[in-house]
Amino acid sequence: MNSPAPILIRATGLTKKYEDFVAVNGIDFSVAKGDSFGFLGPNGAGKSTTMRIIAATLNRSSGSIEILGKDPELHGPQIRAHLGVVPQQDNLDQALTVTENLYVYGRYFGLPKKFIRAKIEELLEFAALEEKRDVKVEALSGGMKRRLTIARALISEPEILMLDEPTTGLDPQARHILWDRLFRLKEQGVTLLITTHYMDEAEQLCDRLIVMDKGSIMAEDSPSGLIKTYSTKEVLEVRFGSDKNALVAGELEALCERIEVLPDRILMYGEDGEHLLHTMKESGLQPLTSLVRRSSLEDVFLRLTGRSLIE
């Protein structure tokens, strides 16, 4: 009962080149059953490329990867039978209705018609699309399409659900509905693979993360572990006006563990932000604005790459 969860995905030195361009550069990772595993990184980091290789729809250039103990280049269909895939770009059948999309997709998995019909009812409820069941996909909102794409990926009760930027382009309310649904799946023990360039999404949904940049892995840990290793507990954000920020940077650096000078503000890292603000004011520095917050994955990324996640 207490034996460690089996490894479902294991990649070693995984590399993908498009012509001469290296999109994924020799990455190693493994995902255990029941994990909620995230790939966090900015646009172009190689997240989608990695996802497509795992989904057994894109051939790697070198390195090795096993999904459920099989090589995707040799056993593509057998591996895909276990997966539910939500691609970065929705590719629903626009001319078909919500239920028809689910039905047709279920047939691609060779599922019995009776099973699919019952499953559709369950998924419509899950995706909160009962009232749209006979509506054509082209008439749905972005959030509804995204939920339908996720529902579609669940029709075969997959071992592993893969979501490539599940909430990009959605408004905050639609994002929260989606997060709630994904959280439910996580509780049911579905293994989740999620890519995102939103640090809040990664914090919310992932137990374990790899931080990717330019095709390489920069760090790997739990969200809190990453913050512990690469940042401090709190951050003090101060603004002195864009021309003065650089001038005071030297003085501020002496006060805290580490600083980051951004174009519009300075981030000061320390264990106690309020205390930091207090000592700063005592030493005669008066910022125009100040804000104390907890460290986030954004700070981790900044520390690791010197850049921010969303340009």
């Binding site: 269909p77 057998q78 039978a81 276990h82 691609y108 998995f109 060779g110 099973f115 075969s156 009760e157």
Partner: peptide, 18 residues
């Protein structure tokens, strides 16, 4: 999980018809 219900052999045979 999924392979309890997904019949890969059947898909190999009839996939084009689906």
């Amino acid at each position: 999980g999924s392979l309890k219900i997904v019949d890969t052999a059947k898909i190999m045979k009839y996939g084009a018809l689906f």
